[in-house]
Structures are given as C-alpha cells and as structure tokens.
Design a binder for these strands. Structure first.
Length: 595
RNA sequence: GCGCGCGUAGCUCAACUGGAUAGAGCGUCGGUCUCCGAAGCCGAAGGUUAUGGGUUCAACUCCCGUCGCGCGCACCA
C-alpha cells in the first residue's frame, strides 16, 4: 500500500475513535510544502467547525489515538489545526525498492479495497462529422477524451469509449443533391473529403439564394429518411469515405475507440423516444413541434427551460421533434443515453464536448432525470467542457487566408517544424530516426499544449511555445526522458547494469525530493480521474522532470563515489524514466530514447 | 435584454476545488560546459489575484454589487 493511503487509513481510524459518528470519507491527506512535512491533513479543522469544537483540541485528541509510528516521524499539529506528517526514510526507501523490483509504479488499480471499486464508465468524445474535414476544433475533444480514457483504464476502471460520429442530419439533403448534380469523380478520387466539402458549400450557397434549390435538397433528405435505395447507397458511400479519413487521423494520433456508434445508429428509436416522452407528459406539442418544457421544479433563474425576455420568463424548450416531423439532436442524444444505460449499465457517462453546448447538456440531463429517473439515479452524467483555440491575435485560430485549420495539415506542420529543429540540434542522427523523433515530438507538442491549460478557458495556439525545449512542453519532458536513457546507454557500455535488487539510499536533498515526488504519481492520477482534468498530470510530470534535472545536476550517477550510491542513483533514474514514460503515455504521448 | 463562463507578473498559463509566504515558462538582467546530453541548470527583478463590499481561524477559490471580454438564447449540431 502506498504510504499516503496508510496514513489516511490510520487517521480515519483515529478520527472514528474520537468522533464515532463522523463521516471520515473526507479525512484525507495530501502532499504539501516540504517545510511543513511530506503530507498534511486539514480535515480536522472542517470537522471541528461543524461540531463547534476547538480545532487544536480535536487535533490533540485524534493524535492521541493515531498510530503511524511505523511509517512516519512524530506527527505535528500546526497552525489552526493542520496535521503534518513526515515520512520515515525507511518507509520511503521501502516504496522505492518495491517499485524498483517492478511490484508497482506508485499507483494502485482500483478494486484493491472496498472504498475504490472499479466503475463502468462510458466516455463520449471526438465526434467528427461525415463529409467534413476534421479540423483544429477536434483536437480538444479528441485529446482530452483520450487522455481521460487512458487514465481511467490505467486505474482499473471498465471504460467504454464511443465515438458519436455525426453521420445523420439535414446536411445530407444538400450533400445528396450535390453528389447527384455536380460531383467531380476525379476530385473525389483524389481527395474525397475536400470534394464532399465543396459539394456542401456550393449547394448551401445556392440554397441560401434560391428557395427552390432548398426545396430540392429537402426532397433528397426526405427520400433518404424514407429509405430510398439510391440515396441510402450514396449516404453509405459518403460515410465510408469519411471513415477512411477518421481512421487515418486516429491512427496517427494513436487514439482508439471501443465503439463508433454514429447518430444514425439510433434512428430506429427516435419515434419511440418522442412518443414515450409525450405519453409520460414530459414533452408536449407546441407550434407543430414537440418539445420538453419547464416543469417548474426549479427557480426561473436556474431553469434552463426558461429564458427572460424583456422582464418576462418565457419558455425555452428543448425540441425533440420538428414541425416537419424530423428529429433533433436532443432526440438522438436521449436515445443514445437510453441505449447506453440498457447496454452497459454504466455508473458514469462522460461527454467531452465544447463548452458552448453546456446549455444543451443541462437540458439533456434534466430531461433524463424526468424520463429515466430510476436509471439516472445510478448513473452520473458529466459534461466535460472546454474552451476554444485562439490564434496569436486572440481570435479563433484560422489559417492566414481565414479558413479553419484542417487537423491533418496541422499535424503535418507540427512534424515538419519538429523535423527542422531536430535536424538542427541532432544533425548526426540518421534521417529516418530524425523523422521518427520529429513525429513523436511534433504530435506530442500539439497534444501536450492542448492538455496543459486548465478549465474551460480558451487558450492561444503557439507553435513556438509548444515546440520549445524550455518551459512546460512535451519536448522538454521527452528530453528529460532521453537524457535518462542516455545514462543507461553509457552504463551498459561500462557494463554497470543496474541490479533491481540493489538497495536504495537517499542522502542528498535532491535524491529525497525526487523520491518523494515519485510517490505522488498515484495521487495525481486519481486527481485526474476524479476531476477529469489531465492538466494535473501535465504539471506533475513537469515538476518531476524539474526535480530530476536538479538531481541530475547535483548528484553524479555513473561517477558516484561508491558502488552503492551509484546503484541507488541508477534506480532513481530508472524509476523516473518509467514514471515519465507511463505518464506521457497516459496523456497519449510517445517517448524516444534519443533526440 | 436574459443566461452561462472568464478576468492572476509586461506576455502565455498554474495554484491539488476553502489551507500556511499566489507558482512556472517566455521576455529582461546576471551567473554556469577541462564534469553522466548546455535543447540544460542556478540566481535577480516583476503581484492590492479586474474592482467594491461580505462570509471565517483561513478567500485567487464561496456570496452580493460594478466594470470589461467571450459564448449561448425553439424547429442546425
């Protein structure tokens, strides 16, 4: 068991001894400023407050019942009622040595004890549209979603990743019309997505200017929806061509899905969904359409089904059937949740979708609480939102000519820029190797830059910053990894291969700092899983690389004074490399041995 | 107009969801390679956390007001 878990468990035991009815689930420890200790708990102050107890007295009482003498130095009460824990050197060494033997890597899979059972989690991300190029806007959903699925899997949860592809909707009327009338076969052969995009743009412009064209497009859509054989065949061909594009991009990014059930998959159930909502009086007709309206259970200000117009609260329903009989994405999303609940019975469904859709998800989740209240009680529905990617000018990121940036081209540019840098810095490496390094660094830089910023705030896209070796970037982290690997290449050349059984001795402050930070890998992974924020892991790895570098500067490894120190330091190097590699992999980023 | 989100060093971003003296990188200035990768490291300067109040042992974090920016407001997704 990791030491912080041992401390927590002992502390919870002690709290229960003093306050038998206390909820100890919030009694936790966390890493803290080294001047106070290695871990601290502030939980007693909160407990004291709700019970109107003197916090320092409570801390004293708990301390009397607390036994962590095996793993900690004397526990101190500090400030208003903090408990500060300092790990015994022997306990720290014990963790490192067992990790060095390969028994763990500073994290625990859930299922080890009753408090952390594996959950079934559906995660819905990426969701590109058929007949459109994937663009810069898909980076965020794809990268964040993939990092989250990797983290949750690493911790032992049952993850079901599902790519909810946009393969149905009104745009197909226009696409079908274009395909039948203005398709350029040669261009389709050359670049299918570009040609499909052209069809849409041309017809769309015509429809804007000419109502009869719009009617024609609608007719094609109606035929498709009615199952017309020709239109179905063309539609399927458009999906096939798009899937080739998706597969290419995902292979490049190393992103995998368990399922890719597109919107069209749910078509058979849309009518039933609406009928059921009507029958249960959750939805009603209005102006020829069917929508879900406010049920009045929330105050108007908090009710997403109400909107204030000129001082009056008026209905802002979620439409589930249009007046022409067609369905909306709310309908599809409801059918999708229903399917997921029935098929996988997940404890959690996570949507990694642009923050601008937060209003939609608010409504969606409220409808589900009314419609599937029994199931939804057991399932946590979460919208993981994110902000936009901006250019240097602070406006949405576009090409110089003002078009959206295509994802494939963006990745090409990342690799090209990385290749230039690698060739400059490491001209001696063979070209094929430089290409591979450029691929890892370029793609890693884009992904990392996207995962690093926090919250739903927008971030500014900057090639120079993400590809820089200095600062919190993927190249810096991979460089730290490559430097460690370089030590081992030299070490093997000297036939001084590390023995996994050799003892670890921690003397220098840099050794201790590094060792203690390694222990926090698991806490960080759990924080990512809990808050669904991969940037915690980014910052952890950056700190790890920094602490390693300061160790590297101050503690000679191969030139250590004696064999024991040398072996111990080799072990620290190896563990750092393994955590860096695992951490980056969890973010979806590869490593290279040399760069 | 109404709702949602945001505002932290000159710039780009953190701050473990209420914890102890708000941290990094860039940029600026100054150190550091006869020594395991200098694409590195160390140091200095830089802050009334937009602003005014409130809550408490403790506020960047929670509540209210103001200003500024972004986004969303029934048959697109």
């Amino acid at each position: 068991m990791l030491p912080h878990k041992q401390i927590e468990s002992a502390l919870q035991f002690a709290v229960r001894a003093v306050l038998p009815d206390a909820d100890v689930s919030t009694v936790l420890v966390r890493p803290c400023d080294p001047k106070f200790g290695d871990y601290q708990s502030n939980a007693l102050m909160a407990l004291a407050k709700t019970r109107k107890l003197n916090p320092r007295q409570l801390a004293t009482d708990v301390l009397a019942k607390l036994d962590v003498s095996e793993i900690c130095e004397k526990v101190e009460i500090a400030g208003a009622g903090f408990l500060n824990f300092r790990l015994k050197n022997s306990r720290l060494v014990h963790s490192l040595e067992s990790a060095a033997r390969g028994e763990h890597l500073f994290f625990e899979k859930c299922g080890g004890d009753a408090s952390s059972q594996p959950r079934t989690i559906v995660i819905d991300f990426s969701s590109p549209n058929v007949a459109k190029p994937m663009h810069v806007g898909h980076i965020r959903s794809t990268g964040i979603g993939d990092a989250l699925q990797r983290t949750l899997r690493l911790l032992g949860h049952r993850v079901i990743s599902d790519n909810h592809i946009g393969d149905w909707g009104t745009q197909f009327g226009k696409l079908l019309l274009g395909w039948k009338q203005i398709l350029n076969r040669a261009e389709l052969e050359r670049d299918a997505i570009a040609e499909l995009e052209r069809l849409y743009k041309v017809i769309n412009a015509e429809c804007d200017a000419n109502p009869t064209r719009l009617e024609e497009a609608k007719m094609e859509l109606v035929k498709l929806q009615a199952g017309d054989a020709e239109n179905i065949a063309i539609w399927k061909e458009m999906i096939r061509l798009s899937q080739i594009q998706f597969d290419t991009i995902y292979a490049r990014l190393g992103v995998k899905f368990d399922f890719a059930l597109g919107e069209s998959f749910y078509n058979p159930w849309l009518g039933e969904v609406v009928n059921d909502l009507l029958a249960k009086e959750i939805a009603r007709e209005s102006e020829g359409a069917v929508g879900v309206f406010s049920d009045g259970s929330l105050p108007p200000k908090e009710d997403p089904f109400l909107v204030n117009r000129d001082g009056e609260w008026v209905a802002d329903p979620a439409l589930v059937r249009k007046s022409d009989g067609g369905f909306n994405y709310t309908t599809t999303d409801l059918a999708t949740v229903d399917y997921r609940l029935k098929t996988w019975a997940p404890q959690e469904i996570i949507y990694v979708v642009d923050d601008r859709q937060s209003g939609h998800f608010k409504k969606l989740f409220l409808i589900l609480m009314r419609w599937k209240s029994e199931d939804v009680k057991k399932t946590k529905l979460v919208h993981v939102g994110f902000g936009k990617i901006m250019g240097d000018d602070g406006k949405p990121f576009k090409t110089r000519s003002g078009d959206t940036v295509k994802l494939g081209e963006l990745l090409d540019e990342a690799e090209e820029r990385a290749y230039k840098i690698v060739s400059e810095k490491s001209a001696e490496l063979p070209e094929a190797q430089r290409k591979d390094i450029a691929r890892v660094i370029g793609l890693g830089a884009v992904k990392y830059a996207d995962l690093l910023p926090n919250r739903q705030s927008d971030y500014i896209f900057s090639w120079d910053k993400m590809l820089a070796l200095q600062g919190n970037t993927a190249p810096y982290l991979v460089y730290a990894y490559a430097r460690i690997k370089s030590i081992f290449r030299k070490s093997e050349a000297e036939s001084a291969i590390r023995n996994p059984q050799s003892a670890i001795v921690l003397v220098a402050p840099e050794e201790l700092t590094l060792a203690k930070h390694l222990l926090n890998f698991g806490i960080t992974l759990e924080a990512v899983a809990e808050e669904l924020r991969p940037n915690y892991l980014c910052n952890y790895l950056f700190e790890l690389a920094g602490k390693f570098t300061s160790f590297y500067e101050n503690c000679p490894v191969l030139k250590a004074d004696d064999a024991v120190t040398k072996n111990s330091r080799l072990a620290l190097c190896d563990l750092t490399a393994r955590v860096l590699k695992q951490g980056l992999e969890t973010l979806g980023i590869e490593t290279v041995e040399q760069m």
